[in-house]
């Protein structure tokens, strides 16, 4: 078992639910609300140094009490360790978990994908929008078990809505403001960005 488990258990007794080892990989189950604290500790502490977040995703099981799990895959490059964190969301609870964006900025698109496919709200994510489906997509969250394979609308309605989508408008200005090229933009455009303008082109 990954040695980090015992340290999580002693440091965060309330957050820790259980741990298991499957095929040599350790999974730690945490309470939903304390995920960010644990991740922060795992990232910052000298004896942990999980400096790479390789994935954020979710799984839906046909479980009546705890259908949804949100999964974080952490990797420590200095110690060559892998740790999987999971938070179970009980049926009926709001699909809300803390965002780990304050710790790993690479979580941005991973969390957006997870939101797009499962509808999980990442609390604290600055720009939580759909990423794979277009922004106006209205049929729901495709990877959920109650989502029909062909979608909810008829093919003609799906096509009509897809053609009505504006391909350019999905680039957020927030993405442009953090881009390297920001300094090269014309002054007027930079001012519009600073004013919080959302649509492009």
């Amino acid at each position: 078992m990954n040695p980090s488990v015992d340290r999580i258990k002693t440091r965060f007794p309330t957050a820790f639910v259980r741990a298991e080892v499957i095929w040599g990989e350790t999974t730690v189950y945490l309470r939903t609300e304390s995920v960010l604290d644990v991740v922060k500790y795992l990232h910052d502490d000298e004896s942990e140094r999980y400096d790479y977040l390789s994935d954020v995703t979710a799984v839906e099981y046909r479980d009546l009490e705890l259908p949804l799990q949100v999964v974080w895959h952490l990797r420590s490059l200095p110690y060559r360790r892998f740790l999987r964190l999971k938070a179970e969301i009980a049926k009926g609870d709001p699909l809300k978990v803390p965002s780990v964006m304050p710790v790993y900025s690479g979580a941005d698109w991973l969390e957006r994908e997870c939101f797009d496919m499962f509808g999980i709200q990442f609390d604290g994510h600055p720009d939580l929008r759909r990423i794979l489906m277009w922004e106006q997509y209205a049929e729901g969250y495709p990877l959920r078990k109650d989502f029909p394979l062909r979608g909810r609308f008829s093919r003609s309605e799906q096509l009509r809505q897809a053609l009505a989508a504006q391909p350019e408008s999905r680039y957020s200005m927030t993405e442009l403001t953090i881009a390297d090229a920001f300094e090269d933009l014309p002054l007027e455009m930079r001012q519009r960005l600073a004013g919080g303008e959302k649509t492009g082109e």
Binding site: L132, M133, W134, Q158, L159, A162, L163, A164, A165, Q166, P167
Partner: peptide, 9 residues
């Protein structure tokens, strides 16, 4: 479907 408006254009 996301490419539909692109190929149309």
């Amino acid at each position: 479907f996301k490419l539909a408006p692109v190929i149309r254009r």
